[in-house]
């Protein structure tokens, strides 16, 4: 296995680990919400603290921006042609698409962690 294979494998492994954390956190959120289906206690807590809720919603802006940049650089790289690391333009767009994709995954999981922290006391 060459150096390219090692890099690709480590990126895949990082994303799989991030996905495991995100799966745990989002399944906990769903469990809490369904448990309080009758009284909607977690949502009442959101309703009573509008300022902090607005702050939590504002955090979703960062994944929304990085996901757009991921799409833009992915499309640019696919339109420019097959991957070649000698061409700096193609290599740059390829790497930026990778970086923004990983950043999106990490940011989404971080925001979900913030929501989970607010709902944890109802578990």
């Amino acid at each position: 296995m060459d150096i390219y294979g090692v890099v690709v494998m480590s990126v895949f492994a990082i994303l799989a680990a991030v996905g495991m954390i995100g799966t745990y956190l989002s399944s906990q959120i769903i469990r809490i919400l369904i448990k309080h289906r009758k009284d909607n206690a977690p949502l009442t807590a959101f309703l009573l603290n509008p300022e902090s809720s607005k702050h939590e919603i504002k955090w979703f802006l960062f994944p929304a921006v990085t996901v757009l940049l991921t799409g833009v650089f992915t499309l640019a790289q696919k339109l420019l042609g097959p991957i070649s690391f000698t061409n700096p333009l193609i290599a740059g767009t390829f790497l930026l698409a990778y970086i923004f994709g990983i950043l999106t995954a990490i940011l989404v999981v971080y925001v979900v962690y913030r929501w989970y922290k607010k709902m944890k006391r109802f578990a």
Binding site: V67, L68, T70, G71, T74
Partner: peptide
């Protein structure tokens, strides 16, 4: 196809 599809999804999200 992958590039076009993901960029459309990401654009709609944004």
């Amino acid at each position: 196809i992958y590039g076009i599809t993901t960029s459309i999804f990401n654009f709609i999200t944004f």
